[in-house]
Simulated scan of single mutants.
Amino acid sequence: MDEYNLAPGELIIMQTSNVRLGVGSGSEALDEIVLTNMNLILVATVSEGLFKTRRYLKRCPLDSILCSADVPQAIAARVNSTPVLRVAFSEETVTVSFTEGGKRLADRWAESVRRAAAGNIDAIDTSELPSGTAAEIADFVDGAVGVVGAVGDSIGSALGASLKAQKPHAEKMAAKVTAKCPGCHAPVAGRKGQGVVCSYCDTKFVL
């Protein structure tokens, strides 16, 4: 789509409005964030005079996300009760706060970014999440479950029991593959499903 300047073979996976870049008083309003199979795109409209505005796109390549134990570093967290998405890129760490949708939306985005970066596009859940009051209730229930779990762990430790907390499944990177560039036929290596740029002719395509 021209409005996002997508590269050949680049596809939109999900997008969300009601977001801000950063957290708290120092944050900046964004029109939306967009996840593709190649980039995390931040979209903002900036005023440039009394009646003039300009739309800006910041493209953050998924192949520049840092990995720990082969897992892309994209996490959901709370900062001063605000749900945020944090993605560690090689040049910077991007923090996006969600003004609607609650922690569940932040969790969904973190999981989706990890899977897109790993090339596991088909595993991304794009179903609609609860909104408004329903989202707040779901978020409250999740928080209550976390508190109960923590209390249960304390009681279990006191009684000598072993109550093991379940950890979220780490999204492993897709298999490494080598393909021929459709532009110049040079060999290009990467992860299956990953968006790449040929170093010989700058052609962008998906492995």
Rank of each mutant, 00 (worst) to 15 (best):
V79W: 01
S47Y: 06
R54M: 11
P61K: 12
S90T: 12
V71M: 13
V43A: 11
E91G: 01
I65V: 09
T82L: 00
V84L: 06
G49L: 09
N37C: 05
R59G: 05
E32V: 09
D70W: 12
A76T: 03
P72R: 01
P61I: 09
D70N: 10
S27Q: 05
E48C: 06
D31I: 05
L40G: 00
K52M: 09
S90N: 02
R59L: 10
L40T: 15
E48A: 14
V43P: 04
M38H: 15
R86V: 01
L50P: 10
D31F: 08
C67T: 14
C67V: 14
N39Y: 10
I65G: 08
F51N: 14
A74N: 05
E92V: 14
Q73L: 09
D63F: 15
M38F: 11
A69I: 08
L62K: 10
D70L: 13
A74Q: 01
L35V: 02
S68Q: 13
R55S: 12
E32P: 07
A77E: 05
Y56T: 13
S47W: 15
C60L: 10
E32K: 03
A69S: 15
Q73C: 05
V43L: 08
L50R: 15
V87D: 01
G24M: 03
T45F: 09
A77P: 02
R54Y: 04
A77M: 11
T82P: 01
A29Q: 07
V34G: 12
E48W: 14
E91T: 09
A77G: 03
V43D: 06
L66Q: 15
F51G: 00
Y56H: 10
A69T: 11
I33Q: 09
M38K: 10
T53F: 06
V87M: 04
S25K: 15
V43Y: 03
L62D: 04
S68N: 13
L42R: 01
L85H: 03
F51M: 14
D70H: 09
A29S: 06
I41Q: 05
R78N: 02
C60Y: 12
E32G: 03
I75V: 11
I33H: 07
P72I: 01
V46N: 10
S27W: 11
N80V: 02
N39H: 12
G26F: 00
L42I: 02
N39V: 05
I65T: 00
S25I: 07
S47M: 06
V71E: 05
I65P: 04
P61Y: 07
P83Y: 00
S27M: 00
V46A: 11
L30Y: 11
D70Q: 08
D70S: 10
L35A: 09
V84A: 02
E48T: 14
R78G: 00
S64N: 07
L40I: 08
L66V: 12
V23K: 12
V43T: 10
R55T: 13
S68F: 08
L30H: 07
L66W: 07
L66F: 15
A29E: 13
